[in-house]
Simulated assay, not measured.
Amino acid sequence: MKFTPPLQSATLIKRYKRFLADVTLPNGEEKTMHCANTGAMTGCADTGNTIWYSTSDNAKRKYPNSWEISVNSKGDHICVNTARANTLVTEAINQQHIPELLGYDNLRTEVKYGQENSRIDILLETSDALQRPPCYIEVKSVTLLDEKNGTGRGYFPDAITLRGQKHLRELMEVVESGQRAVLFFAVLHTGIENVSSAHHIDADYSQLLKQAKDIGVEVICYQADISPQQMKLTSAIEFIDN
């Protein structure tokens, strides 16, 4: 996925009200921009970080600029725009870069399903559902890095997520109905080397994820290559059970 038009850089002043961030442009001007991230953004939003932002041509937007990438003090690149995760995974599947998800004829996004009124991020199907059942894929963006012990361990979620818990219950129902369900962690932090569930942040989510794996929900983790020019999923990394 290439950034068109190219991203521009600024220095972060602060993020606030969840969806807003103030930055300083290279010419000294201060600007407020949109932040498409509802999480805690721990380690991704420190004052003084270099950030990269996109500009929308939609004249109706109150804030035409969107914060896309943060660069931390170690030089790690972090995509903070969680909406990009679905695009990256969809692109990688269409380009046949995810071996675990080959062999399907059709890809649909945002399809309604489940008992709790959910929408699956990606639904893969074949012309013969009896021979190969559909594959339901829930995509999650991972940006939380444990920097205390230097292991490169990434965690999800970075805040308590009732919505994420609901998605795990829905995926378990998919497996129980005889279909395939995948939890796909798109790792959007170049300093992360492996992923675990964040039991210390959301114990209920962690327990549900263990249950989901036990009944057959698959967990796939892919690292992203991130730069101000483009992003793409490059390689599988390990999911480590707590």
Results as ranks from 00 to 15, higher is better:
168 L>Y: 03
154 G>M: 10
120 I>L: 11
202 D>Y: 10
237 I>P: 06
158 D>K: 05
201 I>E: 11
187 V>Y: 05
227 S>I: 03
184 F>S: 06
210 K>S: 14
184 F>I: 08
136 Y>N: 02
186 A>T: 04
186 A>I: 00
168 L>F: 07
233 L>F: 06
210 K>Y: 12
180 R>M: 10
213 K>S: 11
132 R>I: 14
237 I>R: 03
162 L>V: 06
221 C>S: 12
217 V>R: 01
147 E>I: 12
207 Q>T: 15
213 K>I: 13
102 L>V: 03
102 L>K: 09
231 M>I: 11
214 D>T: 13
137 I>Y: 00
203 A>C: 09
134 P>E: 15
170 E>I: 04
176 E>Y: 14
157 P>E: 06
129 A>P: 11
224 A>L: 03
148 K>A: 14
108 R>M: 14
149 N>S: 05
201 I>D: 07
218 E>S: 10
126 T>E: 07
145 L>C: 10
226 I>M: 03
208 L>A: 08
138 E>D: 15
113 Y>T: 08
158 D>A: 13
173 E>K: 15
233 L>R: 02
196 S>R: 12
97 H>Q: 12
153 R>F: 02
141 S>Q: 11
207 Q>R: 15
124 L>F: 05
187 V>D: 04
180 R>A: 05
151 T>L: 11
212 A>L: 08
123 L>T: 01
131 Q>T: 14
131 Q>C: 13
124 L>R: 06
149 N>I: 04
95 Q>F: 10
160 I>S: 10
224 A>W: 02
121 D>I: 07
165 Q>H: 06
132 R>K: 15
98 I>K: 02
179 Q>W: 06
136 Y>V: 02
234 T>L: 04
168 L>T: 05
155 Y>R: 13
153 R>T: 12
226 I>C: 00
230 Q>M: 05
183 L>I: 12
202 D>K: 11
101 L>S: 04
113 Y>L: 00
195 V>P: 07
235 S>V: 10
186 A>S: 12
226 I>W: 00
184 F>Q: 08
143 T>R: 08
140 K>W: 07
116 E>P: 04
175 V>R: 15
108 R>E: 15
214 D>S: 15
188 L>T: 06
218 E>L: 06
111 V>Y: 02
234 T>C: 05
147 E>K: 13
188 L>A: 01
213 K>E: 13
159 A>T: 13
179 Q>F: 10
109 T>Y: 03
217 V>F: 01
228 P>D: 06
132 R>Y: 09
235 S>D: 12
104 Y>P: 03
111 V>M: 11
222 Y>S: 04
228 P>L: 07
201 I>L: 09
235 S>M: 09
170 E>T: 14
215 I>R: 11
231 M>W: 04
198 A>Q: 06
154 G>V: 12
225 D>S: 15
170 E>G: 04
217 V>Q: 03
168 L>A: 05
126 T>M: 04
136 Y>A: 05
208 L>W: 00
